[in-house]
Amino acid sequence: MNSSVVTIEARQAAGQRLRERVFRLATLAAALLVLLLLGGVVLSLVVGAWPALSHFKFSFLTREIWNPVTDQYGALAPIYGTLVTSALALLLAIPVSFGIAIFLTELAPAWLKRPVGVAIELLAAVPSIIYGIWGLFVLAPILQAHVQPALIAWLGPLPVIGKLFQGPPYGIGVLSASFVLAIMVIPFISAVMRDVFETVPDVLKESCYGLGATTWEVIWQVVVPYARTGMIGGVMLGLGRALGETMAVTFVIGNAHRIGSSLLAPGTTISASIANEFAEAVGDLYTSSLVALGAILFLITFTVIAFARYMLMRLERRALSNV
């Protein structure tokens, strides 16, 4: 009798060990799948882009032409549009995001902090296609009727930067796309900045206040220097968003494969080109060129995101070592 109890226990223990192994393997497999996904994305982009890249060689990156009729493709215009819209969007979004983060961490009374914070986060939850149709039907007409004529009248005659504000006010174009992108990335950047500002130890701020500094001086001379790497990380995350954003841009950029010197002219971005043309692309070279655009976009965003994560990781490590 004693021996049978032992065997039952042994069998139960063996069953437990088996389940342990199965569960552990299942979690490991799921975790490895994440790696596999990224590998699959990279591989499929390289394979899909290969025909176009081997056909056009390096000139794919340097030519502006994009002609499905003669099967000639170059990525310069979309790359230019992607970089310019994202840079302009950041230029508009960074000061606003910084202000929001300051308001949420240093100024807002406790009862206001949560609702305002949640409202800004909800702005991030609104799907990008909503920004797109809002940009097209609400923002673009306003820009066309009021903002762009003023820009043309005031900034157009100036030397150098006047070139950026030439031509008729279309409403849609590079400037409008940047504007919509800016509104989209504000919640992302300000959320990261807020979190980063909250890691600044109170002791540092209080000692600065104790020396008689104003709130602004505490922010500028204590909070910002302390949080600099994290702020850069947050901006880079926002940049990653802006570079890859598709639907919002597709609606308002005008989808013209050319590089206009004016910000008011229609242009295109990598993601907008893919979204507009991919489903209808006929011919292997056409499809492959669009995938090649995707590969370039992935390379750019990967670099930006990796840099952002590195900056934020550095900050996390420092925050840990301070504790």
Partner: peptide
């Protein structure tokens, strides 16, 4: 490594995922 890759996927442009599934 997985955490880093996951963060990259988290912020990767969704249209790239579309291209991937198209090829796949």
């Amino acid at each position: 490594v997985i955490r880093f890759v996951n963060d990259v996927l988290l912020s990767a442009p969704s249209i790239i995922i579309g291209l991937f599934v198209y090829e796949l």
